[in-house]
Amino acid sequence: MKILLVEDEKSLAAAILDFLRAEGHVCEWAADAQAADEKIDVYEYDCALVDIMLPNGSGLDLVRKLKETQSRSGIIIISAKNSLDDKVQGLDLGADDYLTKPFHLSELNARLNALRRRRQFDGSPEIVFGPIKVLPDAKEVRVSGQPVTLTRKEYDLLVYLMSNPGRVLTKGAISEHLYGDDIDQVDRFDFLYSQMKNLRKKLAEQGCPDYIQTIYGVGYKLTA
């Protein structure tokens, strides 16, 4: 995808750009509202990642402008403002998603992939990894064509892993994705371990090789 990143914090932008490019996206970076404005005038983007609080302008104005001039492009707001009003306002203006800083890059990736599937930029709504195929519309999982019955959380877990193939995902990032972040941790790492075990077992029952690699003490990685 061709992505525009509007983010004033240079080192954060660098990490995000590094990550997005490694994922095979074409990225451009604007450090302030004015630069972003000019880029929007000239180029078309598949997706824009927009920070709300920017030097010389508001990200919300950019969202408005993008919606007016490039209605095809997806918009994800990345903001440090975790206030409900901003979220509602951003989504009302036509943003597709809202991520509160700090966020995990793998979470951003999952949201981007979900957005891509919804918009069908690549033509296919399916997520495929080896013999595993996920049909998000029907919430169905098949291994070599055989259906696998997963619980809701196991399904979410699998989709998250498949959205970030080849990446080390920390247990914190995964459990935040599954259970949200506005709560104290509830021995969830232990819990995650048991859910992961169940997922592996169910996939293995259909003859799927174990692609989920455990990085001891850190997290997991989906790898071929």
Binding site: E9, S11, A15, F19, K101, F103, R167, T170, V218
Partner: peptide, 16 residues
Amino acid sequence: QTPLAVISSNLEQLLQ
């Protein structure tokens, strides 16, 4: 939140 985002994003990249 922004510095925290910088730290965690860079650490995550480092992890890869």
